[in-house]
């Protein structure tokens, strides 16, 4: 049963991803991205990783896509048609991607993975404990660093997006 769900989800992901990168309209591209992200969240659910699925939906689908939509609305006429690249470049890139894909798949399929059969659900409390533990194998340091990074990116975003006009108004 899970098999079929997985196949449907992967079909969604791939089709909408393709649509997203080849759409002519900006907003549609963003919405297709949203669908891709939801598909990926579905895979997380299938794999018994509920926490991350929730985060995916909240942060990515709810936060990032909204952010992107806002920026699209700020800089675009929403009904404007996007320009597509010329054919030679497209062909070249497709070839490159196919080649790269071939390399990846060749490597992957020639390797024997020691799969361990299990059906463990990842608990959120386990994740939380691990994230904040001081012992060896604890992730407290990356946790703190990430918080610093987020602070820096917030400040950076504000400074960059503030622009000159607001600056001059404040100083002059």
């Amino acid at each position: 049963m899970e098999k079929y769900i997985f196949y449907i989800l992967s079909a969604i992901i791939i089709v909408f991803a393709l649509a997203s990168v080849s759409s002519r309209k900006m907003l549609r591209s963003v919405i297709y991205l949203l669908f891709v992200l939801c598909g990926i969240a579905g895979i997380y659910f299938l794999i018994d990783y509920n926490f991350l699925a929730a985060i995916q939906l909240t942060v990515y689908a709810g936060g990032i896509v909204v952010l992107i939509i806002f920026s699209v609305l700020l800089v675009h006429h929403i009904e404007m048609e996007l320009e597509m690249v010329k054919m030679p470049r497209k062909i070249l890139t497709v070839l490159l991607c196919v080649l790269g894909l071939g390399v990846f798949l060749y490597t992957i399929y020639n390797n024997d993975f020691n799969v361990v059969e299990n059906y463990i659900t990842t608990n959120t409390s386990d994740i939380g404990t691990k994230l904040l533990s001081y012992d060896s194998g604890g992730f407290i340091l990356p946790f703190e660093v990430i918080s610093l990074l987020l602070l820096a990116s917030m400040i950076g975003a504000i400074v960059i997006a503030k622009g000159r006009k607001l600056n001059d108004k404040n100083n002059g």
């Binding site: 890139t93 490159l96 080649l99 390399v103 490597t107």
Partner: peptide, 16 residues
């Protein structure tokens, strides 16, 4: 980016 990816792929092929 194109050159970067192409270079990476070629190096991967060579090493494989």
């Amino acid at each position: 980016a194109f050159s970067f990816v192409m270079g990476a792929v070629i190096i991967a092929i060579v090493f494989i």
